[in-house]
Design a protein around this nucleic acid. Sequence first.
RNA 1: GCGUCGGUGGCAGAGUGGUCAAUUGCACUUGGCUGUAAACCAAGCGGAUUUAUCCUACGCAGGUUCGAAUCCUGCCCGGCGCA
Length: 413
Amino acid sequence: MSEFRFSIDKTSVGNRARTGTLVTPHGTIHTPAFVPVGTKAGVKGVLPEQLKVLGAQVVLANTYHLYLQPGEKLVKGAGGLGTFMGWDGPTMTDSGGFQVFSLGAAFGRSVTKIAKGEELPNHDSDGSHAPAVYDEGVASQHGQLAVIDDEGVTFTSHLDGSLHRFTPERSIEIQHALGADMFFAFDECTAPTEPYEYQREAMERTHRWAQRSLTTHHRNLGATKRQAVFGIVQGGRHEDLRRESAREIGGMDFDGFGIGGSFSKEDMQGALQAAVPELPEERPRHFLGIGEPGDLLTGIAEGMDLFDCVAATRLARHGTIYTKRGPVHLKNEKYRGDHMPLDHETVIPGTEAFTRAYVSHLLRAGEMLGQVIASIHNLGFIIRLVDRAREAIEDGHFEAYREEFVRDYYQLP
RNA sequence: GCGUCGGUGGCAGAGUGGUCAAUUGCACUUGGCUGUAAACCAAGCGGAUUUAUCCUACGCAGGUUCGAAUCCUGCCCGGCGCA
């Protein structure tokens, strides 16, 4: 019997929000939950001990990065991802699919996971303009590091330029070695700027890859029965593709599901509304790479259970902290002499003693402690935000909680 | 005192007759960052502005030249060497 179980505890009225309990071999996760990202088996700037204090329940690492460095065999030899990184709670690994996007089609262009609406082609684009580049010659011309074909992806390491190849089978094999409690099937994350026809093509490829991932996983079940695998819904920013993808992926024998890919901010809710109803109710849903405070609440309202995002720690290192009243750019001149707490309205354990002026100084001075404090603060802020959302769902007033938070955070009247 | 090398924008440091309001780095100001090639990236950074251009600038004062941060003279200041 699998050691992986998910059950829904409470469902919200008037929206799709829900709370759940996710049991893994390394502990139980109460959802909705935010998953701190530790790409290379380490959450940047934050010790596991501190993550616990902040209320983190699970961490996510990346297959692409750990495969290249230090190699999945080494991690396996250390006793698996969790033991290797000194984290005794639940773990997840991402498949490396996103890197195909960030190192491939998006490379060198100003394309991000969440695009600005005006940069995108029309919804009903006929696909007549250039599709994603998947010709090696053209790719190198663009300085891209990844090239996609139907079988898999060929890429050059960003570390030393060496040539590598991922297929769905290989990704699963690596993730088995890494040994996280949950992992994702290998998918293709498309740029939101790609035309409809390419979105469809990539989505269908992701579906085939999902089936192959599952086949590989089941073949090796003897060794990995402790691991759960999540399939990833794609479809870009098109609701019909999202619906179709969710139906397809949702019909496969996955333990949970991820909503992947990229879209514009305005399309996010629509994409979820199209996809979520097609997914099996009783399995966990992970919103990959999300997010920002408001996006997290949107995701929760639309029925998502898990979230991971680099924004909290990246913004922190770059000098921005979250506060109840919106983001604060600590390196801005006006915070030099601001002796107020980082966010006097939000208590983050471990950061109570620090002022904006102090952290602003540390960041300006290039002291890593500034980045550490800001990272702890932001992670704590996001974890708390999602925790409060869970409590609000339990208490039956999620909508009120969401409205109040959004009003304050985005300074709405 | 003599000799020598040098004094450039907040700092460091390029440039050594026109393409120089002056490379670059730091600092500074402001943006950006959503499954992390990200302690990163971008823009701005003398003044005015109708953004075309004008004014003021490369220690100070003169000079040569169509034209000087760049060449010459004097002065001031600093490093080094010799007294």
